[in-house]
Lab assay of single mutants.
Amino acid sequence: MAAGGDHGSPDSYRSPLASRYASPEMCFVFSDRYKFRTWRQLWLWLAEAEQTLGLPITDEQIQEMKSNLENIDFKMAAEEEKRLRHDVMAHVHTFGHCCPKAAGIIHLGATSCYVGDNTDLIILRNALDLLLPKLARVISRLADFAKERASLPTLGFTHFQPAQLTTVGKRCCLWIQDLCMDLQNLKRVRDDLRFRGVKGTTGTQASFLQLFEGDDHKVEQLDKMVTEKAGFKRAFIITGQTYTRKVDIEVLSVLASLGASVHKICTDIRLLANLKEMEEPFEKQQIGSSAMPYKRNPMRSERCCSLARHLMTLVMDPLQTASVQWFERTLDDSANRRICLAEAFLTADTILNTLQNISEGLVVYPKVIERRIRQELPFMATENIIMAMVKAGGSRQDCHEKIRVLSQQAASVVKQEGGDNDLIERIQVDAYFSPIHSQLDHLLDPSSFTGRASQQVQRFLEEEVYPLLKPYESVMKVKAELCL
């Protein structure tokens, strides 16, 4: 049975990233139509530049190519590739079939990587351009969430054990800070992308030097003109047959890092959902379990974690691919890159769409948070109580021993009897502590235990987050809708 299948058929496997999760716009960027249309555009740009620099290419040939950029006979191309065992030459023939007058000058002087690699770089750039505003929107939604809850005390956790208090907004800023680093890295790697350009079979530009009869300047002009037509500021000066596969490492490393950030955020949300302090959106008709109707599973956060793990592992592909590119190139890269580049971007696209949807509907339960604080705060307040007693004339050592005994009794009630923490009640009825009984409410005010959390939130948002989001103001209103 021949390899390949009808990918629109229910009898043929289709990647869930495309069929179930990723956005239509990201799927289109990695589609065959987008790819092969870009090949034709690159052939047109090459012909236009070659004509401008004096090669015998007519206006009629150029116009014929322009008129057929979208006229792609995919069936013919597939048949040609089956016959020739070469995808680029299959599309040269297919393009030439609908451009008979231009057929002889299509791909003039070029090698397969002229269309293959340059198209990949265009796709990487455009895919990054799709991700950047999506990530900015996630940051914006979380920034709104953090600002609104900047002063809401909550129990902090280290080692997932109760620690000092923080605020809900401050905790959210930990998430935002990681995503801001990801946004900066995505922008950097996007701006650092260079075009492969017009380089020939081993990167020496020998074929173009021959076409222009040894004119170095025209060869350099050709490279520059096509690079500018493709919208790049610069091209690699040095290439082998391909652009260095280190570029793929750079791009997928940034995406993998984004995956790590999203995994951490969504894990926190899942843990908070278990504590009943916070939940992701839950639709009115949504079913959490087929057997347990009360369940409210954090399905979206779980999906993000599941896909983020996949995204983090994909960076190993370009690392290994770059390491086995012998001399000017081997074909070890080809099949692998067809999979890992598309999957990385479709996965990143999915987790950003999902995280935006989550961040637009996060639900906080202040009463649950308050109750958990009441359970733990008495123990945390013991040092403040000791200091207040010393100020009232008591002995630190005597007070410490009193607190120690009462704390152990209260802990026994919590752990052995399943009761509430009654340390404060014990202190309130103990005559030894009568000098500070009137101060206990103040000493137990949760806001006095959150330090500068709310001020940190305000400063972080104003100095770091809002300036970073400013270039994306025009796209901030787009909502994230999930079908599944």
Rank of each mutant, 00 (worst) to 15 (best):
A3T: 13
G5E: 14
D11S: 09
S19Y: 12
R20T: 01
R20K: 03
A22F: 08
E25T: 14
M26I: 09
F28N: 09
F28K: 07
V29E: 00
K35A: 08
K35M: 13
R37Y: 14
L44G: 08
W45V: 06
L46W: 00
A47V: 07
Q51R: 09
L55R: 10
L55K: 12
I57N: 00
D59Q: 09
Q61K: 06
N68T: 08
N68S: 09
I72D: 09
F74P: 13
K75V: 10
A77S: 13
E80L: 07
L84M: 06
F95W: 14
H107L: 03
T111M: 06
G116T: 15
R125G: 11
A127P: 00
L130W: 02
I139V: 12
D144H: 13
A146T: 04
E148R: 11
E148L: 11
A150T: 06
L155W: 00
F160W: 06
Q161E: 00
Q161G: 00
V168P: 04
G169P: 02
C172R: 02
I176T: 08
L183K: 07
L186D: 05
K187D: 11
R194Y: 06
R194Q: 10
G197Y: 01
G197V: 02
K199T: 06
T201F: 00
T204K: 00
Q205R: 01
A206Y: 02
Q210H: 05
E220H: 10
Q241G: 03
Q241P: 00
Y243I: 15
T244L: 01
R245M: 04
V247L: 13
I249T: 07
H263S: 10
K264E: 01
T267A: 11
L271F: 07
L272P: 07
M278A: 06
E279W: 07
E280T: 04
P281R: 12
I287F: 02
I287C: 14
A291G: 03
M292G: 03
M292T: 04
P293T: 02
S301Q: 08
E302I: 03
C305L: 03
S306F: 05
L307H: 15
L307V: 14
M316N: 10
L319P: 01
A322M: 13
F327C: 13
R329T: 03
A335D: 00
I339W: 01
A342S: 13
A348D: 01
L352T: 04
N357K: 03
E360I: 05
E360P: 05
E360S: 09
V363R: 07
P366R: 08
E376K: 05
F379Y: 07
M380A: 06
A381W: 03
I385M: 10
K391S: 12
G393K: 04
V405Q: 15
S407H: 04
Q416V: 08
E417H: 01
I424P: 10
V429T: 15
Y432G: 08
I436C: 04
Q439G: 08
L440E: 09
L440N: 08
Q455L: 10
R459P: 07
L468G: 08
A480C: 15
